[in-house]
Simulated scan of single mutants.
Amino acid sequence: MTTLSQNLLDLSDFAWQRLRNRVEGLTDEEYFWEPFDGCWTIRPSDGGYAADGFSADGLRIPPDPAPFTTLAWRITHIVDILQEDRTATWFGHQPLAEDGQPPTPTSAADALAALDHAYAVWRRRLAAVSADELDRPMGEPAGAYAEHDGASFALHILDELIHHGAEVGTVRDFYRGAHPEDPFAAALAGELTPADRPALLAEAAAAQRWEVVPQLADLGFPVNERTKDGFTPAHLAAGNGSLDTLRVLVEHGADLSLTDPRFNADVLGWANWFKQAEVAEYLATVRSAPEAR
Rank of each mutant, 00 (worst) to 15 (best):
3 T>A: 01
5 S>N: 14
8 L>P: 13
8 L>Q: 06
17 Q>A: 14
20 R>Q: 10
21 N>F: 07
22 R>K: 10
26 L>G: 03
27 T>S: 15
28 D>W: 13
30 E>N: 11
31 Y>G: 04
46 D>P: 00
47 G>W: 05
47 G>C: 04
47 G>V: 01
50 A>C: 02
59 L>C: 03
65 P>M: 05
66 A>E: 15
68 F>G: 05
69 T>P: 03
69 T>G: 03
71 L>V: 06
76 T>K: 04
78 I>L: 11
87 T>F: 12
87 T>P: 09
91 F>G: 00
91 F>T: 05
94 Q>M: 13
94 Q>K: 14
95 P>I: 14
95 P>Q: 10
97 A>K: 13
97 A>Q: 12
100 G>H: 08
105 P>R: 05
105 P>D: 09
110 D>F: 00
110 D>V: 02
115 L>M: 13
119 Y>G: 03
120 A>G: 12
122 W>H: 14
124 R>N: 11
124 R>Y: 00
130 S>C: 04
131 A>C: 06
136 R>L: 03
137 P>E: 02
137 P>Q: 04
137 P>T: 04
138 M>R: 07
144 A>H: 12
146 A>G: 05
146 A>I: 01
146 A>L: 01
146 A>R: 12
146 A>C: 02
147 E>W: 02
149 D>T: 11
154 A>G: 10
155 L>D: 05
157 I>N: 07
159 D>C: 05
159 D>M: 04
163 H>K: 07
166 A>F: 14
167 E>I: 11
169 G>T: 09
170 T>D: 06
170 T>H: 11
172 R>S: 09
175 Y>D: 05
180 P>L: 00
182 D>F: 02
182 D>M: 06
183 P>H: 12
185 A>T: 14
188 L>A: 11
190 G>N: 06
191 E>Q: 15
191 E>V: 01
192 L>D: 11
194 P>Q: 09
198 P>N: 08
199 A>L: 03
200 L>I: 06
201 L>D: 08
201 L>Q: 08
202 A>W: 09
204 A>D: 09
207 A>C: 10
215 Q>M: 12
215 Q>R: 07
216 L>F: 05
219 L>E: 00
222 P>Y: 05
222 P>S: 12
223 V>I: 04
223 V>T: 08
225 E>R: 15
231 F>H: 11
234 A>C: 08
235 H>K: 07
238 A>M: 12
241 G>S: 04
242 S>N: 15
243 L>N: 02
244 D>I: 09
246 L>G: 11
250 V>I: 15
251 E>K: 14
254 A>M: 01
254 A>N: 04
259 T>A: 07
264 N>R: 05
265 A>R: 09
270 W>T: 06
273 W>H: 14
275 K>Q: 15
276 Q>N: 05
277 A>Y: 08
278 E>N: 10
284 A>V: 09
284 A>E: 15
284 A>P: 00
289 A>Q: 08
293 R>Q: 12
